[in-house]
Nucleic acid binder design. Structure first.
Lengths: 158, 158
DNA sequence: TACGGACTTCGAGCGCACTCCAGGCAAGCG
DNA sequence: CGCTTGCCTGGAGTGCGCTCGAAGTCCGTA
C-alpha cells in the first residue's frame, strides 16, 4: 500500500494497453515530451481542442516548459488515445471528465472507475447491436435497389 | 414503366423491410392515420421534433385533416423507423434530408439512392469496427481494475 | 355555451463540442 | 534589430439537433 496518487494515475493511464492502441513515442530517441502541435498532428485533434480539454479537466495536468509552453508526455498521448476511443463511442465529454477526476482522486476510486468502465462497455455493446440491426436494414434496402435496376448489371461477368 | 413518382416513393419507403423493423399499424382496425401525439408516443420522438423534421424536409410530406392537423400514415411510421435507425448511426440530418429529396424526385434517382445507402453502409461498418476496438480496450482495462482489487472478489464462488 | 386539452405556426433559445480570434510573449535567424 | 513562427490566455462565436414558448384554432364533453 505504498502506492501514491501518481502511481494510481499511472495505473489508470495503463501504458501497456494504450501502447497497443495509439502509438506513443513519436520521437524514438528517448525524447518523451512534445509540443502541442506535435500532439495535435499525432492524435488528430486541433491544438485548440487540446487546450480546451485541459481547461475543462479532461487532461490529467500537462506540465510546462520554463517559458510556459505545454510539454506533453507519452502518458498524455496514451490518455488522449483512450479519450479518442471513448469519444467516438458517443460518450459525453462530461462523463470522461468524471473519469479523469476519479483518476486524479487516487487509488480509492478504483471501484468507481471499474463501475464506470463496465457501464460504458455495456453502452458500447448496445450501440454495436443497434448498428448491426441498422446494417441489416441497409443490406435489405441495398439489395432491393440492386434488384430493381438490373439493366446496369447486364454487362455479363464473363 | 408506368411507375409514378408516388410509386417510386412507395418503393423507397419499403413497407416490407420497415415492417420487420418498426411496428406499424398502431391501430389494428384498418385505421391507418394517426395524430402527431400518437406517432410521437410510438416512435419516441417529440411532437416538436416531428414537426421540425417535416419543416426541414426530412418527412416525405404528411397529409392533413380538414382542419389542418397532421394525419400520419403507416408509411410515415415506416419512414420514421428508417430515419431513427440512420440517426443513431450518427448519420447527419442533412444527409437524410438529401435522401428524402432523392425519394421525392422519383424513380430516376434510384442509382443515387443506392450509392448513398452503400456509402452509409460502409460508414456503419467502420463504426462497428471502431466500437469493437474500443470494446477490446475497455475489456482490457476492466480486467486490470478487477485484478487490482481482488479483495472484493474474495467471496468464494462455492 | 363554456371549458379543457390537443393541435397549429413561427421564431427564439439551448446544450454540446468544439472553433476561432485578439492581443501578447518568447525563441531563432539573417 | 527586426521579422517570422509558434505558443500563450480569455472569451466570443459556430453548427448541429433539437426544444420550447407564445398566440391562436379546433374538438369533444357537460
Amino acid at each position: 500500500m505504498t502506492v501514491t496518487e501518481t502511481d494510481a494515475a499511472d495505473v489508470a493511464a495503463e501504458p501497456d494497453v494504450c501502447a497497443s492502441v495509439e502509438a506513443p513515442r513519436i520521437r524514438p530517441g528517448g525524447q518523451t515530451h512534445y509540443t502541442i502541435s506535435e500532439v495535435a498532428a499525432a492524435c488528430g485533434l486541433s491544438a485548440h481542442t487540446l487546450r480546451w480539454y485541459e481547461r475543462i479537466g479532461l487532461m490529467p495536468h500537462v506540465d510546462r516548459s520554463h517559458t510556459g509552453q505545454r510539454r506533453f508526455t507519452d502518458r498524455d498521448l496514451e490518455w488522449l488515445g483512450l479519450v479518442a476511443k471513448l469519444r467516438l463511442t458517443g460518450m459525453p465529454v462530461a462523463d470522461m471528465v468524471r473519469y479523469a477526476e476519479l483518476v486524479r482522486e487516487g487509488e480509492h476510486t478504483f471501484p468507481d472507475r471499474h463501475a464506470l468502465l463496465v457501464a460504458t462497455r455495456e453502452d458500447v455493446r448496445r450501440r454495436i447491436a443497434e448498428l448491426r440491426e441498422t446494417l441489416a436494414v441497409l443490406d435489405y434496402k441495398i439489395d432491393m435497389y440492386a434488384a430493381l435496376r438490373p439493366p446496369e448489371n447486364t454487362e455479363r461477368t464473363a
